[in-house]
Amino acid sequence: MLSSRFVISLAVLAAVCMSMSPAQQDTVYMSVLNSRKHRLNALDNPTVGLFVSTDAGVSWHHKGWTGYIRTFYTESGSDGVIWSGCGNGVLRSSDGGISWRITTGREVTEVLKVKVHPVQPSIVYAATAYGVFRTTDGGETWSKRNTGFFKPFVSDIVIDRSNPQRLFAACEDGVYRSADSGGRWRKVGLDGKGVRMIVQHPSVSQILFAGTEDDGVFMTVDGGSSWKAANEGLTHLTVYTIVCDPSNPERIYLGTHGGGVYRSLNGGLHWQQINNGLTNLVVHSLAVLPSNPSIVVAGTLNGGLFRSTNGGDQWIFNSQEEAQIWGLSVK
């Protein structure tokens, strides 16, 4: 088995090569679940839902429905279609967010994540409180993919970009893996632990990180077959989000409940809190901008969005006062 040190060194090399590619335009999708100013069926009802930024997170424009439908997460595919996971189901927009359609029916609800196939964008997976659903026809039809789950509460799903038939699911009782696009799932680690999210390393597909409810961060370097804790320096063990710097895979950020943002400069071997300027320490979402990785945005629960232009050394409040920034993603 390859040592994690060696694997990470390879990753750094790969990332350096990647960073030499031409500059790209980042589109950042921010899913605002709710706001302190919002009350269901009330007058004080500011806009929530999807906001999009095309200027590195400086300004944001609302897209889609203005009211509350519990927008958890939004992601765009390679064909430009935008997908949102919401309380109302999975929403799809093929015109940049001007018009939307709920693609799912009554059987799909509480959609916590949507993940688009990296090569075939008509294939999309929805991670929901009732398990995994998949469409292969751009949302016209959906099918349940839950065989093998003990309890199908799935809060996140990862499509292995090196082998898109291989999936990972974050569940309440561990990490599950499927080799056949969700046809059958098998628990591969963290048995009994509430897994909140999983992320794949940007350059080495065999490396994945998992954030848990009470046990911090776990890492695998063999594609999920074995996992070990990576909590050195981490004193807040509820981990909601992990993102890797695509230009420097040794640099990893994570968001915690109560501990704000932590950063590792050595591939997750050690973590250090970086909360200068961050006035809300419940961080549920993070994004690093590929075109300028020193820009990091952090979404808090009830504290709005913060932005850093120096890799997290200093945070400045950006927008969405008192809002719950549940999800962030970058295209």
């Binding site: 009350r39 916590l112 909140r196 909601y240 549920h284 629960l301 009830n302």
Partner: peptide, 15 residues
């Protein structure tokens, strides 16, 4: 409810 368990009590108190 599918939201985070450490967040929910406070959130429910709002309503």
């Amino acid at each position: 409810f599918p939201e985070e368990q450490k967040f929910l009590s406070d959130e429910v108190d709002r309503y």
